[in-house]
């Protein structure tokens, strides 16, 4: 079974890599298979991982006695009928005359996301980041004044302020304000460069992973001849 798994995986890997030459039927086959399989994969994960234990088992526990016996004796929680109804309303999107009903479910999703994002961004990304940026500029360690840390703290404080000035468009970027904005651009360029470097490294490590998998496949083939 493992040999077959490696063979299928290797052939599909080669089919995807064939796109580097040009678009071709092998790539299209693998691409279409990926679309179908991944859609079904996430559906199955959602149904068995969320819908059955968090909805069906909560609304009517005996319903899951064959699939999740541990939850079949729990007390029913009828309020879980609400997401069930909203979810069914979402599916009306596929029936054109009553497709407008799906907006009710969409409204819940949007309202939830807006409410959650409001509090999370306010706490961690706004207040949290400002709080972390308010650090003493002069750094004194165990060995006395630290020039290196002081310089780093200045870079951080000036960088955050100048970066924010660059994003402030209500005032024309001229004079001292313009100079600060320019420093902000340079800081942002360093950030983009660092993010780019990291992304390249992550993708290359994935590529190395695929190459070593193909090596494993060649090992399986070599095993046949030895």
């Amino acid at each position: 079974m493992y040999g077959l798994q490696v063979w299928i995986g290797a052939l599909l890997t080669l089919m995807i890599f064939s796109f580097l030459y040009k678009d071709n039927p092998f790539y299209k086959f693998a691409e279409h298979l990926f679309v179908g399989v991944s859609a079904a994969y996430w559906m199955v994960v959602g149904v068995w991982g969320t819908m059955v234990p968090n909805m069906l088992a909560k609304i009517h526990p005996p319903l899951v006695r064959n699939v999740l016996p541990a939850l079949a004796t729990a007390e029913p929680e009828f309020h879980y009928i609400i997401p069930c109804i909203l979810g069914i309303l979402l599916l009306t999107r596929l029936i054109t005359p009553i497709a407008w009903l799906s907006r009710w479910a969409l409204a819940f999703i949007i309202g939830y996301t807006a409410g959650v994002r409001f509090s999370r961004y306010l706490q961690s990304d706004f207040i949290g980041q400002i709080k972390s940026s308010l650090i003493p500029i002069i750094s004194v360690g165990d060995g006395g004044f630290s020039i290196g840390m002081t310089f780093s703290h200045i870079v951080l404080t000036v960088g955050v302020v100048c970066g924010l000035i660059y994003f402030f468009f209500s005032k024309e970027h001229k004079g001292a304000f313009g100079a600060a904005s320019r420093v902000g651009i340079y800081i942002l360029m360093v950030t983009f460069g660092a993010s780019f470097g990291y992304t390249v490294m992550a993708r290359i490590s994935l590529l190395i992973g695929r190459m070593s998998f193909l090596g494993e496949w060649l090992g399986v083939i070599a095993g046949w001849f030895s």
Partner: peptide, 30 residues
């Protein structure tokens, strides 16, 4: 050092800007 200091400064400026945008948009939606 780049990852720890100038990169963090840029990331923070971006994060604070995004947070302000998300907060304002969330309120407008709600």
């Amino acid at each position: 050092w780049i990852m720890g200091w100038p990169n963090t400064a840029g990331q923070r400026a971006i994060m604070i800007g995004i947070a302000l945008g998300v907060i304002a948009t969330s309120l407008r939606i709600i």
